[in-house]
Design a protein around this nucleic acid. Structure first.
Length: 548
RNA sequence: GGCCUUGUGGUCAAGCGGUUAAGACGGAGCCCUCUCAAGGCUCAAUCCCGGGUUCGAUUCCCGGCAGGGUCACCA
């Protein structure tokens, strides 16, 4: 068979370059020894979720701790799945979490020498190599229809055979020259398939940087490399792109492990050295009692935008992910409390081999701790930026009074105390938590544990002697005074010794006051709260809280 | 079902032939205390099962079992 003629007929493109030219256009990168070139290669299908951030963070950390490059490539070979604005969304979401690219699609960088970074724009490169494979007898056209393929698959399944296009099931593999041209003449659509040279009885061990040594079986599937629209499949594009973009380390989800044999053969027939691989385990969630990998379609609540909307502090999310990525991160952080997470020596070998369950409790704990490290001013900025984007009009009005908010923040964060408070977990929660400081969002629940007469007596007596100029101890002395007058123990020790002699203790009196002023039985230091609210507002609230 | 892969407390996990089997989150309790939060202290809770190998297995081997992934002209 005249392979050159066949290649020219199948791929008549005139814009293809001699293969060696591509090596010249995309020369090996000039990077220091040990520098890793990693990439994130999403398909532009819309929002990205925590799992993507997870692997992006690994890519980014490895590239940047080794002095390498982290780039963004868009795998847009499937026209059907394309979503407008997805690329910008990926970049923006990751940037929010401090994951930044050095080069790639939509990245403004002088390093962009390995593009284009959209696979659709690289069609000629793939086609040039596909053409050469045809010329070398390593690829061939396949005219099988979807129905035919499905029928074969059903037959294979019924007979419990391995499904796919291989061996005797590869009907088009041995088409004669006449048959091929007849099909072509009839205008039948075709794909280009790899003519696999592999044998599944051959096993080899492959070293994965995360999983360690794994056993892989040689590929014998005649996978399609060029779809009927002339665009490559993932497998083919992966081999060519990661070679010419000079990726040194491919970090991708473990769902790719099963197609590794295909990739190994592809690199081989293409004559490219293989990059190193690290297949990450996926983040899991519990669904109906069993674990399941996080899915874009099923778990919109794990979209990165969800965390942004909920006002999670980005560094907290990153640190949470770091604890899963490298389990020695937490220990390192305890030893280096002041250090930035970027100073941590991230290693791919430390990555876990099995999928971790997403743990919201842990995230929340880290989030509280991170947030407690901020200054009130930094906290104001963080909360305010969230309020401006996601808050209500009332929230925006409240935040217009920066000094007032900062006074609240000083209290809520425990500034000046021996230890910082850790009340703030995320912006959405923090903003609701301080609602009682504003009259328009103050919604008291007067759930007193004492009778109306006692409550009213406590409230009116305290209102009469309350002086905003009092310091904490003077204030508390007055609370005790009111306690004593109403049959409560002024000293906790007295109450504990003889509880039967009292209606309650100072703590109960403070609770009545607290409920009146904040609407809640629990709050930070009441004296300070009253100071922030101001005498006017306090007396009004004390009066309003009386039981009619 | 075939193939690949994983299996230490509720969760994330150290461990790499001999340990009282770390630590963190969560849980329980105590202390502190005007409540809450924070903090300090304490406690409960783990090596999937069965065979080997070995003086000795959580650790090595084999077999089960359970979980996960994958079997497209999607990535």
């Amino acid at each position: 068979m005249d392979l050159v003629k066949l290649a020219n007929t199948l791929i008549p493109d005139t814009d293809l370059l001699p293969l060696e030219r591509y090596e010249e256009i995309y020369p090996p990168r000039n990077l220091p020894r040990g520098a890793e070139v990693t990439r994130l290669a999403p398909s532009p299908t819309g929002f990205i979720h925590l799992g993507n951030l997870y692997s992006a963070l690994a890519d980014e950390r490895i590239a940047h701790t080794t002095g390498g490059i982290f780039y963004l490539r868009i795998e847009d070979t499937d026209e059907k799945r394309k979503v407008e604005g997805a690329v910008e969304s990926v970049i923006r979401s990751l940037k929010y979490f401090n994951v930044n690219f050095d080069e790639g699609a939509e990245i403004d960088s002088p390093l962009n020498n390995y593009g284009p970074y959209y696979q659709r724009q690289r069609a000629s490169i793939y086609r040039a190599f596909a053409k050469s494979l045809i010329e070398r007898g390593l690829a061939y056209p396949c005219f099988c229809t979807e129905d035919e393929l499905n029928a074969v698959r059903e037959e294979q399944t019924a007979q419990k055979l391995i499904t796919g296009y291989y061996g005797k099931y590869a009907k088009c593999r041995n088409l004669t020259e006449e048959q091929i041209y007849a099909n072509l003449g009839a205008g039948k659509p075709f794909v280009i398939r790899l003519k696999s040279q592999g044998d599944t009885s051959n096993k080899l061990t492959f070293h994965d940087r995360i999983k360690g040594d794994i056993t892989v079986t040689e590929n014998d599937q005649d996978v399609v490399i060029l779809k009927s629209d002339g665009i490559p499949t993932y497998h083919f594009a992966h081999a060519i792109d990661d070679h010419f973009m000079r990726t040194t380390l491919v970090i991708r989800g473990e769902e790719w492990l099963s197609s590794l044999p295909v990739h190994i053969e592809l690199f081989k027939v293409l004559g490219f050295p293989m990059p190193a691989y690290g297949h990450t385990c996926s983040l899991m969630k519990v669904d109906g009692g069993t674990k399941r990998k996080l899915s874009k379609r099923k778990d919109p609540e794990l979209s990165l935008d969800y965390y942004r909307k909920d006002g999670y502090y980005p560094v907290a999310v990153v640190k949470y992910l770091m604890t899963i990525l490298n389990s020695n991160f937490e220990e390192w952080e305890r030893k280096n409390p002041a250090a930035d997470y970027t100073q941590f020596k991230f290693t791919i070998e430390k990555m876990g081999k099995s999928g971790a369950l997403f743990d919201l409790d842990k995230l929340n704990d880290i989030s509280k701790t991170e947030l407690s490290k901020l200054s009130p001013e930094q906290m104001y900025d963080f909360l305010n930026s969230w309020v401006q984007e996601f808050g209500t009009q009332a929230d925006k009005d409240h935040f217009a009074d920066r000094a007032y908010i900062i006074a609240i923040l000083n209290l809520v964060m425990g500034i000046g105390g021996k230890k910082r408070r850790k009340d703030i977990e995320r912006a959405s929660q923090a903003v609701r938590m301080i609602d009682y400081f504003f009259d328009d969002t103050f919604s008291p629940q007067y759930a007193y544990r004492f009778d109306g007469q006692t409550v009213n007596s406590v409230l009116s007596q305290f209102a009469a002697i309350y002086d905003p100029a009092d310091d904490n101890s003077a204030w508390f002395a007055k609370v005790k005074e009111v306690a004593a007058k109403n049959g409560f123990a002024a000293e906790m020790s007295d109450y504990k010794a003889n509880p039967q002699n009292y209606k309650g203790s100072v703590a109960d009196v403070a609770e009545i006051l607290r409920i009146a002023v904040t609407g809640m039985p629990n709050s930070p230091d009441l004296c300070t709260i009253m100071g922030i609210l101001g005498a006017d507002r306090c007396s009004k609230r004390l009066a309003a809280a009386m039981i009619k």
